[in-house]
Computed example of a mutant assay.
Amino acid sequence: MHSSSPPPYRINIKRSRKLPEASGITSYLQSNDKISSLLPAIKRNASLQKECCAILPGIFDSCEVLQLADEQLSLATPNAALASKLKQQLPKLQSQLQLRGWQINAIRIKVQVRKTIEKPSPVKQLVLSDKAVEAFDMLGHTLEDNPQNAGLIAALGRLVQRHHHQD
């Protein structure tokens, strides 16, 4: 018997607009006015980031180019200590960037502390009933004692021991 509705496990997804394929992403970005106006700035910042990393590799790994506007370069550092180290290297950075063709007359440093939220590691809270622990214990004692079962028997023994200590 045929019904007009799809089976309950089938999901029909309708897209309002077709998303670009990976090969056409550049043309999509260029065709989108809002994004295409940002592309030159993004490319310039990425290029500046590479240059700065090449000039100050040890220090600049954690730093980020924020923007270049009115011949002023703004950089971000994750903490004040790194900002202090970077500040000492600014004359070198500025002169090297100028030698490489960048029109930079000033460099500003902003400390931008990133909030890192650490996910707590999940605590296994498996609660087994006494009957389940007895069943695992019995299984561990009834398995044939051979090299093939040795790992399983040991694991069952540890499981039973752990659950006896929790009581």
Rank of each mutant, 00 (worst) to 15 (best):
L66E: 10
S16F: 06
H163Q: 12
E64V: 03
V113F: 05
L82C: 02
H163E: 12
H163Y: 11
K115F: 08
H141L: 10
P6D: 01
L66Q: 09
S23Q: 15
H164G: 01
S3T: 14
A76L: 08
N146S: 15
N12T: 08
C63V: 01
L73H: 02
I153Q: 12
H141W: 04
V65I: 09
L86K: 07
G140D: 04
E144N: 11
R162Y: 13
P7C: 00
A155S: 15
S3Q: 11
L68S: 06
L19W: 11
A54I: 00
R158L: 08
I117F: 12
G58Y: 05
S95I: 01
L19Q: 13
K115N: 08
Q148R: 12
A83G: 11
G24L: 09
Q89F: 00
D137K: 14
S36Q: 07
M138V: 11
D167G: 07
L97I: 03
A154H: 15
F136Q: 10
N79S: 08
K85H: 09
D61N: 07
V160I: 08
A80T: 12
K110D: 04
L86Y: 06
H163G: 03
K124I: 13
E21N: 13
C63K: 02
T26D: 04
A132N: 07
T77L: 10
P78F: 07
H141F: 06
L90E: 03
S129Q: 12
K115H: 07
A46W: 04
L39P: 09
H163L: 00
I117S: 12
S4I: 07
E134R: 04
Q112P: 00
I109P: 01
L152S: 14
P120L: 05
I11D: 00
H165K: 15
R114T: 06
V113L: 14
R114W: 02
R108G: 02
P122S: 08
A135G: 11
A83M: 05
P8V: 00
I25A: 14
A41K: 06
T116P: 00
N32S: 14
A135H: 13
L19G: 07
E134L: 08
T116Y: 14
V127D: 12
L68P: 03
V113K: 15
V160W: 10
D167M: 06
G157A: 15
H165L: 15
P147N: 15
S23E: 13
P40L: 09
Q67I: 00
I107N: 01
V133Y: 09
L97W: 03
A41S: 13
A46E: 05
K131D: 15
Q125C: 07
S4A: 09
S74W: 00
D137A: 15
P91E: 04
S62G: 01
D33P: 14
I107A: 02
L152A: 15
Q96S: 13
A83N: 03
P147L: 14
D137E: 15
K14Q: 13
I55F: 04
D33Q: 11
I104K: 01
P20N: 05
L86V: 04
A83W: 04
K92G: 01
S62L: 13
L56V: 01
K34E: 14
I117G: 01
P147F: 11
C52S: 10
Q166V: 13
